[in-house]
Design a binder for these strands. Structure first.
Lengths: 135, 135
DNA sequence: CTCTTAATGCAATTGAGTTGCAAATATCTT
DNA sequence: AAGATATTTGCAACTCAATTGCATTAAGAG
């Protein structure tokens, strides 16, 4: 029942993984398309990203504003479920993982957890340093 | 600078507020359109919802899968920022507020918080009771 | 009742993401 | 190295949520 698909190492896949790995923040499809500079078709990017997610090489996450972004799996191991906080900067728009910030909470009786998405909006260190030096 | 706009109480707005208030869960644009049963245009629904959010009568939130949903402001006061957990059921698809579940966490130096979006996926009490009685 | 302007309806548009299908190419076999 | 086979890709067309411009309608203040 669990179809085993033989994955292939293609030019597009290699390039996309490289791009994702080089970024410290989550990237949109558009970001990646731009970085690839015409190396492959738009549709291919979508398909490669889907595959990467299936292979646990990348995370797909939705920002507070509904924008879908992708992130290379890095320190992922027990962190794979992203129980940590994602920080979404209101100024520069960056979406980053705060691997060490893991919220504590308890679900009421009857709720069963399978996945978590914690996103915090605000100003990142870079931006809050620049804009509100005197606050 | 802070433009004061005179809001009007219209048929569409009243109907939409009523629908949202009667729902215990967050609703999509489509849910609302269905409930309105042709009372007004699709576009009007979008515009009314935008207004409701601006007036703090409703919340706009994005589910883990990127679907935008709306929720009437209810117990909102200090809760307005939605520091509590939203629960998104994988089976029935409901997105509800767990007002009493407020995660504890500490942001690293330099990060300034303005808004929070905590969404937890899994099975809600209703669904986990139905499907996995013997778990 | 009249006037001002917010709100609405309609048609057209944008943009993200998907799908079907034929052509290209990665990988396995011999 | 050549051939077989199934995965990947490109292309064009499509879906679906959401937005926009503009003319018309209707709140609600005076």
């Amino acid at each position: 029942m669990a179809e085993k698909v033989k994955r292939r190492k293609t030019q597009a896949k290699t390039a996309i993984v490289d791009i994702l790995k080089q970024s410290t923040q989550a990237m949109t499809h558009q970001d990646i398309e731009l970085a690839l500079d015409g190396l492959c078709n738009r549709v291919t990017i979508y398909r490669v990203l889907d595959r990467l997610v299936k292979e646990d090489l990348a995370h797909k996450l939705v920002d507070v504003d509904g924008v879908t972004k992708y992130l290379a799996c890095r320190d992922c191991g027990e962190n794979h479920l992203h129980h940590h906080v994602h920080f979404s900067c209101e100024q520069c728009g960056e979406l980053t993982c705060l691997y060490h910030v893991v919220p504590k909470f308890t679900l009421p009786e009857g709720y069963h957890l399978s996945e978590v998405n914690f996103t915090v909006r605000g100003d990142c260190p870079k931006c809050s340093a620049t804009s509100s030096a005197a606050e």
